[in-house]
Amino acid sequence: MDSRIADLRKSYERDTLDESASQADPLQQFEHWWQQAVAAEVPEPNAMTLATVSPEGRPSTRIVLIKGWDARGLVWYTNYDSRKGHELAGNPYAALQFHWVELERVVRIEGRVSRVEAEESDAYFHSRPLDSRIGAWASPQSQVIRSRAVLVTQAARYAAQFALQPPRPPHWGGYRLQPTAWEFWQGRKSRLHDRLHYRLEADGTWLRERLAP
């Protein structure tokens, strides 16, 4: 091992996370941190890691972009025939993670995933740039292809077929994760980080607990 890797470390001293200064509702806490991430001009604050599990119990992760949230959950869009789509079809539980490096913060969310309503997927699809809409048709996501030329050829084909009005592909749409657990992590000095965990109780309320770092 390169010894210089082991020597890489940072002291986190930017902020704190105290129970008295946090929201009782984790969605409100997320919205507060989100607004701060946007105001701080964090690069791509909407980028989040999505973790799914295969039928064999093997986890996989990838970056997706959050496109909205409300009391029902957090939404992103993708190809239903992708690896993540197949894994969610077999096991509808997943985890999300935001890492806002500049703020020394992490947000983790766990819950059950379902597809969003077709009308909602249609509305978002038609708000996308034309090239992105054509790309949703052109890319057989997660499948093996011979070369990039396959994508270019497919894109040209669908652009000619649909012109300026490509419909939403039947294999493309949104997913919504309905949280059952949240964790808000704030880096602190000496690796004594702040971790506030919210757990959904049977009566629909949230229990807030502090976890040891």
Rank of each mutant, 00 (worst) to 15 (best):
P92K: 11
G73M: 03
W100D: 02
E19P: 09
P45F: 00
Q23T: 07
Q29L: 12
E56F: 06
T78W: 11
S54I: 05
L17R: 08
R58Q: 09
S22N: 07
L27V: 12
T78I: 06
V53C: 11
A21E: 15
M48Y: 05
N91P: 00
S20V: 10
S22I: 05
A71Q: 12
V64I: 14
V38D: 02
Y77F: 14
G68R: 05
S54F: 11
T52N: 03
W33E: 06
L65Q: 03
E104F: 04
D81H: 14
F30W: 08
V101A: 10
A89C: 10
Q97P: 01
A94F: 01
G57Y: 06
D25A: 13
Y77H: 13
R72C: 05
P43E: 04
W76A: 03
V53Q: 04
D70K: 04
Q28H: 13
L74D: 04
G57I: 08
Q97I: 06
S54E: 06
P43Y: 00
L50D: 05
Y80W: 11
V101E: 10
S54A: 09
K67P: 03
L103S: 08
L27E: 14
W34V: 02
E31H: 12
L17M: 10
E44I: 04
F30L: 12
H86A: 13
T61I: 09
S54T: 03
L50E: 04
A24N: 13
L96P: 02
G85T: 02
H86Q: 13
A71W: 07
I66D: 05
L50I: 04
Y80F: 14
R83M: 12
Y93F: 13
A95C: 07
E104L: 03
P59S: 12
G85F: 01
P43Q: 01
S20I: 10
P43S: 04
G68D: 06
R105F: 02
V106P: 00
L103M: 14
N46Q: 15
Q28L: 15
L27Q: 14
F30M: 08
E102M: 10
